[in-house]
Write a protein that binds this DNA or RNA. Sequence first.
DNA 1: ATGACAGAGATACTCTGA
Length: 259
Amino acid sequence: MRIATWNVNSVNARLETVRRWFEQEQPDVACLQELKCVDEKFPAEPFERLGYNIAVHGQKTYNGVAILSKTPLEDVRRGLPGDDGDDHARYLEAVVSGPTPVRVASIYLPNGNPIGTEKFAYKLNWLKRLNAHARQLLALEEPLAMVGDYNVIPEPRDAEYPAHWTRDALFQTESREAFRALKWLGLTDAFMQADGSPGAYTFWDYQAGSWQRNDGIRIDHALLSPQAADRLRGVAIHRDVRSWEKPSDHVPLVVELEL
DNA sequence: ATGACAGAGATACTCTGA
């Protein structure tokens, strides 16, 4: 089973690019982030035509996450527990049905810039809530894939130019510590486990020729429970998609589980 | 030190992203 995660930066502005990738790759499951539309505006039809069941947690203009699956989705949860006042659509969870069901979460973690503001505090609080929820899910002892745009550069090796990010929320000590804390719960970073080669990035800014200079960072991650990590067979970052016409600034990350 | 891109939705002297 192949599970993909991709921050598409507006699913409607990106529709042709995303549809083309789905047609080529036909992932069993795909988690999308930054839909930038409400549920009713999600372009379901082209994906249903490719055989997908769809769960959407959308929002006007900002955020928005989805899970698409070739098999039916069950036990859908919208929003991260722990703050009823949080109205950002950044978390969606569902169980992908099949002989071995897999719980999948589509995550769009707050950016948190600029540091020292409310936004950075929101990011750290969100990470704390994600940690608490991950702890609950791990207690279920089932195959679990928490995938998405974590907006965290875990280590200097995950940036071509680490010095560019020293004052950025994505690379702050607190952000990196919180990401490590998730892993210490018992989650495996699928890319590091199955590949780990340096220079593997998932994001290049639109600005300042970042793509041309390969000024990339690895901020999209797939964290697996032990029961999913046992079945990890491989991982791929679809780097070439960044050179397509009208690209997202993120590229797809695909995890293969033997199920 | 600043801007550079891109998208949404506004019609802005904006907000957000990373």
